Simulated scan of single mutants.
Amino acid sequence: MHLMALPALADNYIWLMHDDQGRAAVVDPGDADVVEKALAEHGLSLRAILLTHHHQDHIGGVAQLQQSHPVEIHAPNDPRIDHVNQRVADGDVVELRGPDVRLEVLAVPGHTLSHIAYVGAGWLFCGDTLFSLGCGRLFEGSPEQMLASLERLSALPGTTQVCCAHEYTASNGRFALAVDPENPDLAERLAEVARLRGLSLPTLPVPLARELETNPFLRIDRPALVRWGERNGAEAGDRVGRFAALRQAKDHFRG
């Protein structure tokens, strides 16, 4: 099985997986033309579309792709998402037939209330819930929901390859360094990110174990983040308060 990150729009990635027989599936195709170009260049046949949430930069290409390809379209049960023929929910298993991939559906509310992720074949397609060195904004959900969602993802095997939907790693890294400046693993990751972006290469996917070492939103119980929370009005034992303060600080960060 092969995986490609297709740059789209301003900073999105559309994830395309395919087998050696040329059968493909895409995750969050916000731009149909990007997908069509990749299919043509690599001689692939689109068989399925997976959607994580309703935002236009993730679903904007679905209608056009559906006109050209008779595909299964898997999405959360959210009326804001049209053209869907396979509604899925937490605990469901998506069995793709060409490419042959088995993906478990995880409910991960926070960024939106109906947000889901897909995990399988060693990959995690997490939409806008988890980013490298960051996490999604809370447009609809609560800090409690987002923290629980991130903890659920954190419990996956460390070898899981995190396939986020945006190239935010460098900007997230500047905030991460501001709140966790003595983390040597973070310094190493930032050097790697600078090298990759200097070559116009994606910083993704990234092993979950690497994120557990470097992503402040996955490290809120570490001493450095507990101290940061206390300096910013969160009590030491208030994990949700500390997470909420961290997310609010990121929302206003201009580093």
Rank of each mutant, 00 (worst) to 15 (best):
L3S: 00
M4C: 02
M4P: 00
A5F: 12
L6H: 08
A8F: 06
A8H: 06
A10V: 05
D11G: 01
N12Y: 08
I14F: 03
D20W: 05
D20P: 01
G22H: 04
G22R: 09
G22Q: 03
V26D: 13
V26T: 14
V27E: 02
D28P: 00
G30V: 13
G30S: 13
D31I: 05
A32L: 05
D33A: 15
V34D: 09
V35K: 14
E36N: 05
A38H: 15
A40L: 12
A40R: 15
S45N: 12
T52Q: 13
H53G: 01
H55K: 05
H55P: 01
Q56P: 02
Q56Y: 03
D57R: 03
H58Q: 14
I59D: 02
G61D: 13
G61R: 09
A63W: 00
L65Y: 05
Q66K: 14
I73R: 02
H74L: 12
H74I: 10
H74Q: 10
A75P: 14
P76R: 11
R80S: 01
H83Y: 10
H83C: 10
V84Q: 09
Q86H: 15
Q86Y: 11
Q86G: 05
V88G: 15
V93L: 11
E95K: 11
G98A: 12
D100W: 00
D100N: 09
L103H: 01
H111A: 07
H115R: 08
A121F: 05
G122H: 08
L124F: 04
L124P: 03
C126S: 10
G127N: 06
T129P: 01
L130P: 00
F131W: 02
S132V: 13
R137C: 00
R137Q: 10
F139R: 10
S142D: 07
S142T: 15
P143H: 12
M146E: 07
E151W: 06
R152F: 03
L153D: 03
S154K: 08
P157T: 04
P157M: 05
T160E: 02
T160C: 01
Q161T: 05
V162I: 06
H166K: 15
E167L: 07
Y168H: 03
Y168V: 00
T169A: 06
A170G: 05
A170S: 08
G173S: 02
R174F: 06
F175E: 01
P181S: 14
N183L: 07
A187K: 09
E188S: 14
R195T: 11
L196R: 12
S200G: 05
P202V: 00
P207I: 07
P207A: 10
A209C: 11
A209F: 04
R210T: 08
E211M: 09
L218I: 08
R219C: 05
R219P: 01
I220C: 15
L225E: 14
V226E: 08
R227N: 13
G229W: 11
R231P: 04
N232M: 00
A234C: 13
A236D: 09
G237L: 09
R239V: 10
G241V: 13
R247A: 09
D251K: 00
D251S: 14
F253R: 00
